[in-house]
C-alpha cells in the first residue's frame, strides 16, 4: 500500500466531511459528502477490499445520496429559509464539545502502539470470499440485518399508503 495515496484519500475524506458541515447550501453539502464517499472507496481499494469499495459507491453515493438530493430539490429551499438566528450559547457549547473531542482523540491516538498489518491472503476482498464468510460464519448477523431491512421496507410502504388514503 502506497502511503501517499492513503494520505491523499484521507485528507480529501476529512476535508470534504468538514466542508459538508460548514456549508450553508444543502446541495453543496450533499455533493461534498459524495466526494468523501468516493475517497473512502479509494481507501477501501488501497486495503484490497474492492468489493466493499464498489458497494460503497453503489449503495451510498449511487442510491442513498440520489434520494437525499432528490428530497432537497423537492423542498426547493430559498436563501431566506436557510438563514438561522445567531445563538451564541449553542456556538460556545459546540466549540467546547468539539475541542474536548479533538483533545481526546489526539491523546488516544498517541497511545496506539504501531501495528503491522498481516499480508493479505490470496482472494481476499473478492466477492467469493465475502460471500462464503457471510453465509457461514456471520450467517445469523446477515439474516438479522436482512430482517431489519425488510421491517424497514414494510414500514415505509405502510407510511406511504397512509398518506395516500387521506
Amino acid at each position: 500500500m502506497n502511503p501517499y495515496f492513503f494520505y491523499a484519500f484521507a485528507t480529501i475524506t476529512v476535508l470534504m466531511v468538514v466542508l459538508m458541515i460548514l456549508q450553508k447550501n444543502p446541495i453543496t453539502g450533499a455533493m461534498c459528502l459524495i466526494v468523501s464517499f468516493f475517497s473512502l472507496a479509494g481507501l477501501y481499494v488501497l486495503l484490497e477490499a474492492h468489493f466493499i469499495a464498489v458497494l460503497q459507491i453503489l449503495v451510498y453515493a449511487g442510491a442513498i445520496m440520489v434520494l437525499f438530493i432528490f428530497v432537497i430539490m423537492f423542498l426547493n429551499l430559498k436563501k431566506e429559509d436557510l438563514k438561522t438566528g445567531r445563538r451564541p450559547f449553542y456556538q460556545f457549547a459546540a466549540l467546547i464539545a468539539s475541542g474536548a473531542l479533538v483533545t481526546f482523540l489526539v491523546v488516544q491516538y498517541t497511545k496506539i502502539p504501531p501495528v503491522s498489518f498481516p499480508e493479505s491472503v490470496a482472494g481476499f476482498g473478492t466477492v467469493e470470499a465475502i460471500g462464503s464468510l457471510m453465509f457461514s460464519k456471520y450467517v445469523i448477523a446477515f439474516e438479522v440485518i436482512g430482517l431489519l431491512l425488510l421491517v424497514g421496507i414494510i414500514g415505509a410502504v405502510l407510511l406511504g399508503k397512509k398518506e395516500n388514503h387521506d
Binding site: M31, H50, V54, I57, L58, I69, F70, M73
Partner: peptide, 19 residues
C-alpha cells in the same frame, strides 16, 4: 473482481450530472 457491480455503480453516478 466485481466488474458488474462496478458498472452498475458507475452508471448510477451519471444521474448526478443531470440532477
Amino acid at each position: 473482481n466485481a466488474g458488474v457491480l462496478y458498472i452498475l455503480a458507475m452508471t448510477s453516478m451519471g444521474v448526478f450530472g443531470i440532477m
